[in-house]
Write a protein that binds this DNA or RNA. Structure first.
Lengths: 156, 156
DNA sequence: ATATATTTGCAATTAAGTTGCAACTAAAGG
DNA sequence: CCTTTAGTTGCAACTTAATTGCAAATATAT
């Protein structure tokens, strides 16, 4: 049975190729996993998904590919406040920065973008003469649902 | 003459005592290290400073005390974008949130507080009906000095 | 002063990510 | 296309940061 190598060349593949980075089947697999992810994935989850497409793929290759993407500014790394373990989560760097809210009760992650944040970045660049390359905003608290349902409960 | 920049000594001890937490000599030592720190310290640095005061103190006790402080919302945990290693840094939770800028070239950490950020938090609480407990803002880029000195250089 | 629930230090363990290296392979050149 | 070669992969071993189980020690209430 032939492996359906029918992936539409994604933006990440195209970006790396345009920068002269060598493209391997392993990298294509990992990049497609990251691009089609529906939530934030950690390295182990990326590996698990990638192995469904290429069972021999090693976790070292996942770590190295993530590092490559970080070096090229194509993914952002998040902790999501380490609500579970010390792992890191990755997402394709968006056009416009957004902030992450993590519910400490149910673990849900919400994203939010705001002109106020863009203005805040502008203020920092001006007032501190600091040239911003990357931002990471993580906010912990109770989401709307957990606020209504909470009945005075506290997180674990 | 009062020292305006200096934190009130023993505030962490007082806070914990007022919450009925048992106070040990080890905890007093670790708390004093955190309170008198002049920069952000990681667990290993806290241990090193604490051992100067109590050589038998174990690193496990440092980790457990940090966890205690986090549970009580008395310290904030930072990664400072993992510019060096995967360790975490700790600081006493300030009255007013501030954001952290890490220079990717020289490693310097700058802090910044801003009404815009307070307004951003207000917007989140309103628009997302999200009750904020903790915030963490880490921004990477080039500080003013490194921008002037850079001569086109890039970080390692 | 005593009782007891909590905390400590030690040793062992887990979790996440990295490194050295031989074999492999993508991309460039004939 | 076939060869070349510099970059990449997979494996095993390793590092670093943090956690766990447990006996001994100790802070606090009585």
């Amino acid at each position: 049975m032939p492996l359906p190598q029918t992936e539409v060349p994604g933006r990440l593949v195209a970006e790396l190729l345009s920068r002269g980075v060598r493209m391997t089947t392993q990298r294509r697999t990992i990049l497609s996993v990251i691009e089609t992810a529906r939530q934030h994935l950690d390295a182990a989850q990326i590996l698990r998904h990638a192995r469904k497409l290429d069972p021999g793929l090693d976790r070292v290759t996942v770590y190295r590919t993530i590092r490559l993407l970080k070096r090229h500014g194509l993914v952002d790394e998040l902790d999501l406040l380490h609500l579970e373990g010390e792992k890191h989560y990755y997402e394709r760097r968006p056009q416009r920065d957004h902030l992450h809210m993590a519910c400490v009760r149910c673990g849900k992650i919400l994203e939010f973008e705001s002109d106020l944040f863009e203005r805040l970045k502008g203020q920092i660049q001006r007032d501190c003469r600091f040239h911003i390359l990357v931002t990471r905003v993580e906010i912990g608290g109770y989401c709307a649902q957990c606020r209504s349902n909470s009945s005075g409960l506290h997180p674990a």
